[in-house]
Design a protein around this nucleic acid. Structure first.
Lengths: 227, 227
DNA sequence: GAGTCGATCTCGTGT
DNA sequence: ACACGAGGTCGACTC
């Protein structure tokens, strides 16, 4: 539906949209999206499913202001509410879409992890893989390997941020308490490492490795072709 | 537009959507969204603006498979590409929306910070505000105050998670090196504090304070009305 | 069900 | 322009 409307959200925060022409979308599960004619995929305002919508008549004051319909959208799991005042409707249509077969992805962190595990020498000479997703009480270590001078714990990110360094630091604290593993060296590996993250990491004696995904995938493809 | 289509994204990762009926939305700035009839506000697939779209004829093989149009959407700033194969079109319409007046929000972290600064006694008796956003080399401390037994650094969150405790710990380490400030006590203040975050905080001698935003806003409104 | 973590994150803000 | 932090984050996965 394309309509001139104003929107008021009340829930975890309060937000208002003044009257303007926008696109309104109501999904089969009750979700509602309000989009403008620009910006990225995030709607100006929305209601997450499951939700219920009630259409009612405008009161006298609203009618005078040109409102023709009032939509009240309520979340079923919380008391979040969306109140949409609709003035002029430019377009309205409804369609059955059916269930979507879903999305197939490739190239996310798990792929990077698989590739690095296969090409563990990218950490430096003399490294061998022990295991991926090595479990610890505070979560799995992305890659655990044997280096030339002891064990190596690798934290892997697509974008290396300060959070990743903190995460790796927690793992290292824990792993170094294990006499069977200590000493454990830390490596922060990412496609891109932010300067602040690099500074923090090196300050803590953690080595930083920048990975080239395309190059690693290229090597992977070349290896696959051998079989 | 409502159409049966398949979608292929290639860019920072590769993703595919098999042929199915979906909603296609092309915005004025070139952004494209592909929505199914369920899920939250995130589209199944999309192209962020600015982007350019080229419509072309299907080749022979595609025609035989029932494809009637081929859309190629390219980002202007990168080499991300969306290839949309359109089979049956159920609905197609186009509308001018104009520029949106924008969203007004209330109840985010900055509001909480303002309210806590005004109602600093919520930290406990004998507290007085020194300053908000106290600058340090690793970022601003949300609130710095004077407590009954030294200085107090407050980290403020809407939802108190383990990350916030880490952040506050870094600030405390730094502030306690300043002889003019030390000793600095830490307070982790949030509308909701996760059990794990509370445990970590208390383990590090950081006090946790749960804030009631509605109550604080109520007090604020009451104060405003005096003037 | 709750917690954790990644994301084609998006979006604001400040330097 | 870039960097950082917050999000009504969403969504996938584990425990």
């Amino acid at each position: 539906m394309i309509a001139t409307c104003s929107v008021n959200y009340s829930g975890r925060l309060n937000a208002q949209l003044p009257m303007a022409k926008r696109l309104l979308m109501v999904k089969a599960d009750g979700g509602v999206l309000i989009h403008s004619d620009g910006g990225s995929y995030k709607p100006l305002n929305w209601m997450s499913p499951p939700a219920r919508m009630k259409v009612s008549e405008p009161d006298e004051q609203q009618s005078e202001a040109g409102i023709t319909e009032v939509w009240t959208v309520s979340a079923e799991k919380s008391d979040d509410t969306l109140r949409i005042l609709i003035a002029e409707v430019e377009h309205d249509s409804s369609h059955e879409l059916g269930v979507d077969p879903g999305l197939i992805k490739d190239g996310v962190e798990s792929d990077l992890q698989r590739l690095l595990a296969e090409q563990i020498e990218r950490l430096g000479d003399g490294h061998s893989l022990i295991r991926r997703e090595h479990p610890t009480p505070i979560g799995p270590v992305d890659i655990l390997a044997k280096g030339p001078s002891g064990h190596v714990a690798v934290e892997l990110k697509r974008r290396g941020d300060i959070d990743g360094v903190e995460q790796l630091t927690r793992y290292l604290d824990l792993l170094n308490r294990d006499p069977l593993l200590a000493p454990v060296e830390g490596i922060f590996a990412a496609q891109q490492i932010k300067p602040q993250a690099r500074t923090l990491a090196e300050d803590r004696g953690i080595r930083c490795v920048v990975l080239d995904y395309d190059e690693m995938r290229g090597v992977d493809d070349a290896e696959s072709r051998l079989f």
